[in-house]
Design a binder for these strands. Structure first.
Ligand SMILES: [Mn+2]
Ligand SMILES: [Mn+2]
Ligand SMILES: [Mn+2]
Ligand SMILES: [Mn+2]
Lengths: 253, 253
DNA sequence: GAGATCCATTAGGAAAGGCTAACTTTTTAA
DNA sequence: TTAAAAAGTTAGCCTTTCCTAATGGATCTC
């Protein structure tokens, strides 16, 4: 049922995709969900190559029918390309859950290892791990794990903490960061997924937050990456949302 | 304590080794334990490339101080090269044990997956898996797993079934095959590691074997790859060993 | 609406790792 | 002991993926 990414011959008759090509597809997928879309520059940043290299690779992927491209424009995945990308996201997030739950990795350690393993595991490995974990639907950062049929539940009702008005209450559900130091900070502040929070007030540099009694400032950088399952402010006349300093940004995976 | 193989900078200051280079070192190590040694031709067969490619790579590895080489001769690992090779063997066999025990792979399925994963897992992954399995000393084929300090117990007292004289009794300890069909045959015949056997007689095409009451012919091809922990024949006057048709051959990993 | 400033693309080239074909050395065996 | 066979090496080439430098578009600002 899964799209083949690895060694097998592809859906048409083409050879397999290189790890590099796989990473391009995955980053295009993740960036496509953002406002800017998958631009050459952003892809270069995420993948760690120069823009010229991105242009070259995108041409190749377009020839192989995995992306659609117009020069000087953001690139889009074809259905084939999307399937491969989502398959990789499934691998990545399943692996993060596995590393965390079964092997006892810390939550800030899982990303890097999953980044390498995602290209290498077989469909059998994917299946066995999914069974071992009883088909989890979230990774340790709260990111949804696509199903085996590659359906990806998108959380419509999650909002970036940075965009919440004063008085909002809710629960942190996703942390879209992957930098180890940033993740450690989140943990130090007890802002892991599942934590109940209340917005005590806004602030030029972030959000003032009430968590388990204590009250402190969450910097914008962080607040943009904490996605909250929120109820509107209990009884105030605050606007439903406001334009924040930072918008949520998809994180690398 | 472990030699770094992966992404890290190497022992001197050199960059990391490619997966390809790692495979060469591992196969040189495994072939060095055989009578023919690590020749260009055998390496080409094992690695799946042409002999010309092997010559080219061996030159590169020699320049990097990982092998010592004389043209037209079998190649040898330096101490540095050996450490990297043994580290890979540890990864491979630990992974086989993990796939078999934790993920429930069949014993004929573990090799291929481990072949890909061995290059990609971190030292952390290695350590966590070793802990999870309580530091196993054998993989599912009975192959010894090098310790974290890279000590590799070699089983001096194991003999290929093909070389045993009539009347010998013993226990199968290792199965040095990796072909799936061959492994399935071994399983069908109940010749897994741990099985007690007795040599009922020799035969031009193999060995006649007594296993759990039944008696059947084990073809030479197989008998050369079944390593037995044996006692000499109980009270007969048979010679201790004999020259068999096939000698034991290290298997790929 | 015209620069200035990004952003994207092109051209040319390098490194890694494979290949084929031709040639040399070693080994085998008549 | 010598000729044929097998094994190993060399030379030249190809593909993949990256790079730098230069060029060509898009966009923002005044
Ligand atoms: Mn990756
Ligand atoms: Mn994640
Ligand atoms: Mn390998
Ligand atoms: Mn094994």
């Amino acid at each position: 049922m899964n799209a083949a990414i690895g060694k097998q011959r592809g859906r048409n008759g083409s050879a397999s995709l290189s790890h590099s090509q796989q990473d391009y597809l995955k980053q295009i997928f993740l960036l496509s969900a953002t406002s800017r879309g998958a631009t050459t520059q952003l892809l270069a940043d995420r993948i760690g190559v120069r823009p010229a290299s991105v242009t070259g690779m995108l041409k190749k992927l377009a020839e192989e029918g995995l992306v659609e491209r117009a020069p000087y424009r953001a690139v889009h995945l074809t259905e084939t390309g999307r399937r491969i990308a989502v398959e990789l996201v499934r691998h990545h997030r399943l692996l993060e859950a596995f590393l965390s739950r079964t092997l006892g990795y810390r939550w800030d350690e899982v990303h890097e290892e999953a980044e390498a393993l995602e290209h290498v595991i077989s469909e059998r490995f994917e299946q066995k791990v999914a069974e071992l974990l009883a088909h989890p639907d979230r990774d340790p950062h709260g990111d949804p794990i696509p199903t085996r049929e590659l359906a990806l539940e998108e959380d419509q009702h999650l909002t970036a903490l940075a965009l919440l008005p004063k008085g909002s209450q809710g629960t942190i559900r996703r942390v879209t960061l992957q930098d180890q130091d940033a993740l450690n900070l989140v943990e130090k502040l007890d802002l892991l997924p599942g934590t109940a929070i209340e917005v005590a007030g806004t602030h030029p540099d972030g959000i003032s937050l009430l968590v388990a009694g204590s009250r402190f400032l969450v910097p914008s950088l962080l607040a943009a990456h904490l996605l909250v399952d929120h109820a509107p402010p209990p009884s105030s006349a605050q606007p439903e949302t406001r334009e924040g300093t930072g918008r949520p940004v998809a994180h690398e995976q």
